[in-house]
Amino acid sequence: MFIIEKIKTIYRSRLLISNLVSRELKARYRGSVLGFLWTFLNPLLLMLVYTLAFGIILKPRYPIPELKTALDYSLFLFTGLLPWIWFSSSIIEAGNVLSIHGALIKKVLFPVEVLPIMTVTANFINFLLGLPILILFFIILGHPLTWYVFFSIPVMIIQFFFTLGLAFFVAALTVHFKDVQNLIANLLTLWFFGTPIIYPFNFEPILKSKIIKTALLLNPFTHIVEGYQYSFFFGSLPHWKKLSVTFIVSLLFFLAGYYFFDRVKDTFAEEV
């Protein structure tokens, strides 16, 4: 059985994965003065930029009760940005990861699937390291946090599978078609604005337009991001029905991605 066999492969490679992930994280900021601080600074600076642009310069035309002030808005933004950074960095890096580690594929007997797994996991850990900052901001700005925060854990699992599935596709396709990388970079920008990160899902123009609303509902990342927004920002139960469907979709995505990757991986050693 494909699934059982693959779970075994991943289990056998656990030491390899954990070491590659820690190397990836160590090497990322090695040589820079601030070093590991960048893990925290990067999302923080990004949040400031978006707060300035969309919270202050382009004030929302349709104010939402929960997002009255720029500070509220920045918190809301940060809640959605952190998981998005995990997602988008993973996908972009997945496009490079096979060619960067081409020597391993070509010259060493090596389970290639470890590489996309490494990328997604390394970015996941980066995301986890960003969470204390998020919580710190909630406390500083006096925004209440509830026990619903723990509902973000299943959301993370869903996101992990979804991201990994897509990472497998992107990694395998980029080996054969370099164009995929450019395509993905632009697609991700569209995807970012098509996900309720800088605006809430119940933003008036969205609710008004049926097409936009449907498109947003079909976007799995909408439900993932909403999961975080509910459990952190709004302090309420995430929409578990939508999330369950998203979970199933993510799992299917993961299996399809892994299967595709597995089918074409024998060609990597020649093409990388």
């Binding site: 030491l15 590659l20 010259k107 060493v108």
Partner: peptide, 30 residues
Amino acid sequence: ALIELGAGFHPEISGRENIFINGIILGLTK
């Protein structure tokens, strides 16, 4: 297989760290 020496070495991390990661890649335990 000594096909390319140092395949998989990461330039940014130390020789010591690379020995460990390379050993694991080649199938050794910690």
